[in-house]
């Protein structure tokens, strides 16, 4: 009796749990690394005025100086402290990344909800998503940036326009499966309106998914903002990491020893922030997305 009780449920779930734990450990560790990176960046952004030794707009030293105790990363072409610029740049890069990704999430979620819930309309909407997905990315980005003019708001809009499509796809898939669940069919047959069902039953179940997508999209948005700024298509007078690189390029730092303190730090920061959000997004997605969840 005891044996049957103890042995029967054991083999199946235990194996699953063990396998699952191994996987989850992996994911959790990556997610934790991502989380720490993001946390550090956010802290730096919030505490920028406290952490930065100088005002990034201030001409604090001799132009083109190399690193010294006064200026740990040297100064740029007009004598602004590069370290302070990096610290304040965190604000711009994170803000643009987060706002653009949030806007993209909003568009993507709305399109995904409608697309999944109203199959006919959805068929049309999804063709629109297909179009956005196959657009050649960087050329379109450059054309849009040149056409709309350079300002931080335009940069956000451009990035949002280009990265909402994958979110829409993921959300729609989730909504499609939700729409046929018994409780939704029941609610509908009891006379609940589309709006009520969407708001009350569908949206809450997709919200988590959207958040996961949002974090992953932030990583892409930060990279895009940096590319745009580096190409001089952002607002070059706004101190983000990308525009620091733009100025480094414009003032020849790529050809001089200055690359070590003028090119490398913003490059690494862009890499780490993109990596941080990507890892965090990956971990969240593994846990939230039903299609990726191991069974």
């Amino acid at each position: 009796m005891t044996t049957t009780v103890s042995t029967d449920p054991e083999p199946g779930p235990a194996a699953v749990v063990r396998r699952g734990r191994r996987l989850r450990d992996h994911t959790t560790a990556l997610g934790a690394i991502g989380g720490v990176i993001v946390l550090v960046l956010v802290t730096v952004a919030v505490l920028a005025p406290v952490l930065a030794p100088y005002d990034p707009a201030e001409r604090a030293g001799t132009p083109f100086s190399s690193p010294s105790p006064d200026h740990l990363l040297g100064t740029n072409d007009v004598g602004q402290d590069l370290l302070s610029e990096m610290i304040y740049g965190t604000r711009v890069s994170l803000t643009v990344g987060i706002v653009a990704a949030a806007a993209a999430m909003l568009i993507g979620t709305v399109v995904g909800l409608i697309g999944g819930y109203f199959p006919r309309l959805g068929a049309v909407a999804m063709r629109g998503v297909d179009v956005v997905l196959i657009l050649p990315f960087l050329p379109l980005l450059i054309v849009l940036a040149a056409y709309l003019g350079r300002s931080i708001v335009n940069t956000v809009i451009i990035i949002a326009i280009l990265i909402w499509a994958p979110t829409a796809r993921v959300i729609r898939a989730q909504v499609l499966s939700l729409a046929n669940r018994d409780y939704i069919v029941a609610a509908r047959s009891m006379g609940a309106g589309h709006g009520y069902v969407l708001w009350r039953h569908v949206l809450p179940k997709t919200m988590l998914l959207a958040i996961g997508e949002f974090v992953a999209a932030t990583s892409g948005a930060i990279l895009l903002e940096s590319s745009l700024s580096f190409l001089g298509l952002g607002d070059p007078l706004q101190e983000s990491w990308g525009s620091t690189l733009y100025w480094a390029q414009a003032r020849g730092a790529f050809l001089t020893p200055a690359w070590k303190w003028w090119v490398l730090p913003p490059g690494l920061l862009i890499m780490f922030s993109a990596l941080g959000f990507a890892l965090l997004g990956y971990a969240l997605e593994q846990r939230i997305n039903p299609r990726l969840r191991r069974s």
Partner: peptide, 13 residues
């Protein structure tokens, strides 16, 4: 003009 880095710096100053 945004294609002229030096002039942008002049404008800031």
């Amino acid at each position: 003009a945004s294609n002229n880095a030096l002039r942008m710096r002049l404008a800031e100053l």
